[in-house]
Each structure stands twice: as C-alpha cells, then as structure tokens.
C-alpha cells in the first residue's frame, strides 16, 4: 500500500507483541491534515497499541510509520520524544494531570518542556483554557475540579503547543454523555480551527460520530471502512 496522496501520518504493516500477546498483527493507517479519524474495535483488539505506535510512544516490532516524510520506526527514543513534544498532542482517559501543579501550570507544561519561558507559556496556556471554557480554573489544582473540567484542561494542554496531530485515547471514557459530548465538540472544533489531525481511539459510537471516518481494529488487524466499501 502506498501512502495516500496528501497524507500526514501513514503506517503500514505494523506489528507489535508484548511478550506472547500479539497486540498488532499487520495494521495499516493513514490520516490527512485536519481529518478526525476514529479508531474503533472491541477491547483488547489493539486500538491503544496502534495509537501508541502511531504517536511514537512505543516502537513497533515491524512495519513503517511515516510522519511528514520522516520514518518514525527507525528514530531513537530522544528523536521520538522531541517529535512528541513539538508536533503531537495527547489526551488520555484519566490520570493525566499532574496533581501537584495548578491547572494553568499543567496546560503550560508542554510549552515549558519545549523551552518556552514560564510567563509566555502560562499566557498561551490561559488563552487555550479560555477557548475550552475553563480559564476560571487556572489557579485550581486538578483535585479541585470536576472530571469534565479536568478533561477540558487536558484538551487545552494537548493543543497548547499547536500540534499537527492530536492523539486522544478514550478522551471521554470517564465522563457522562453531556460532559463527554461537550469535550468532543470543543476538541474537534479546536482541532479543526488549527487544521490538526485527530486520532481518536474510542469504543463509543456517539464519540466516534464526531470523526470524519473510522478504522476498525480487530485481532490486531486494521480495516479502513472507507476504502473497504
């Protein structure tokens, strides 16, 4: 399979095993700038592993991952970390905000990791918090805000560096439907406004409905539903 024209992030033939457990067994993927792609599939099918490989968090055992003309699979850990810091953003289900830092410090964290000064970073962070309607929580600690608010803070943190790809792993998994939808709306709006691609791992159809298309992962193999039809 050749990388589709204009694709930002393309993977083919990904294989990954954790010990005897095969998580990915020849999975393919591609996403365009500004596109929201849902990764669906039953639990244990390898969705999260696919996301981790695509994001350069874990190196695949085999296969190739091309991001903007660069091969991720052969990068070393430091290069992949640098890529994640500058080009990618992340939202997880829970346990992601640093409990000791205030919300605005949490949002500013990725910028500061990139070497931005504290003042500058926190100004940008506050700006993003405003876009996700949580700027009034700036001085609070994560333990003092609700789940939905915390998740929006996390989205703000994921977008604060202006990433080209946003990886979201069950971003609404711990929220009720109202909060979950609000987070999804804000997330997709914000991503579209910056033309960021979103890789959205979810098992919920109503969350996946915020995507442009979906990919199904079953038994470590991927199935691109658009191309299959």
């Amino acid at each position: 399979m050749n990388a589709p024209a204009g694709s930002l992030l393309t993977a083919e033939g990904l294989r990954k095993a954790y010990g005897p457990t095969v998580a990915l067994d020849g999975a393919d993927f591609s996403i365009h700038p500004g596109e929201v792609v849902a990764v669906m599939g039953p639990s244990g099918s390898g969705k999260s592993t696919l996301l981790h490989c695509l994001a350069g968090i874990v190196p695949p055992d085999a296969g190739s991952i091309m991001y903007a003309g660069r091969e991720l699979a052969t990068m070393n850990d430091a290069e992949r970390s640098a890529l994640r810091r500058s080009e990618f953003g992340f939202v997880f289900q829970f346990g992601q905000l640093v409990p000791e830092l205030t919300c605005v410090e949490n949002v500013a964290l990725p910028l500061r990791l990139n070497g931005t000064s504290r003042k500058e970073a926190e100004r940008t962070a506050l700006d993003w918090m405003g876009r996700l309607e949580v700027d009034d929580l700036a001085g609070k600690r994560p333990g003092e805000v609700s789940g939905g608010q915390g998740q929006r803070v996390a989205v703000a943190r994921a977008l604060v560096t202006g990433p080209r790809v946003l990886f979201a792993d069950e971003p609404t998994g711990a929220l009720d439907s109202l909060n979950g939808e609000r987070v999804m709306e804000l997330l997709t709006d914000a991503a579209r406004s910056t033309n960021a691609a979103v890789v959205l791992v979810t098992h919920e159809a109503r969350v996946a409905a915020y995507s442009d298309r979906e990919i199904v992962v079953r038994d470590g193999k991927s199935r691109d539903m658009e191309r299959a039809v």
């Binding site: 994001a55 968090i57 430091a78 970390s81 640098a82 890529l83 994640r84 810091r85 500058s86 990618f88 992340f90 997880f92 346990g95 992601q96 640093v98 409990p99 964290l109 990725p110 990791l113």
Partner: peptide
Amino acid sequence: KKLLSVLVAFGTRRRT
C-alpha cells in the same frame, strides 16, 4: 506509574 507514562507520552525528557 500512570502519570509518569503520560508525561513521557508528552515527550518529557528522561533527564527532566
């Protein structure tokens, strides 16, 4: 453990 993993996903340097 989980928090550390998230920070690493963000590209936090091991040194940091």
